[in-house]
Amino acid sequence: MTNDVRAEWPLYEVFVRGKRGLNHVHVGSLHAADDDMALRHAHDVYTRRNEGVSIWVVQSHLIAASSPDEKDPMFGPSNDKVYRHPTFYEIPDNVPHM
């Protein structure tokens, strides 16, 4: 067995900007030994057909993320603040452009 070389390359998350004017969007992940290799691999794996004009890679463990279990404390309060939405306000139909 090859367990001695099983030590895996770090996991990277890949973000691609589809075209100018758009945000970078998460497209998937890959393993690479270092940042340069991660960019190269991202190019080969995720942009074989003009899918992007720019790539970001970042080691997965460097990303802090909210947990789905804490959805309520995290996102619940926005449901209480309906006045943040434009539809909260009644405007007469005869008022144009609003």
């Binding site: 997965s60 990303i63 802090a64 993320a65 909210s66 947990s67 279990d69 404390p73």
Partner: peptide, 20 residues
């Protein structure tokens, strides 16, 4: 700060203890 958890745990099989 408590709302955040490193993404490394994204791949963890176990639930956090406070959810037991």
């Amino acid at each position: 700060r408590d709302y955040y958890r490193p993404i490394g745990q994204l791949f963890a099989r176990d639930l956090p203890e406070d959810h037991m």
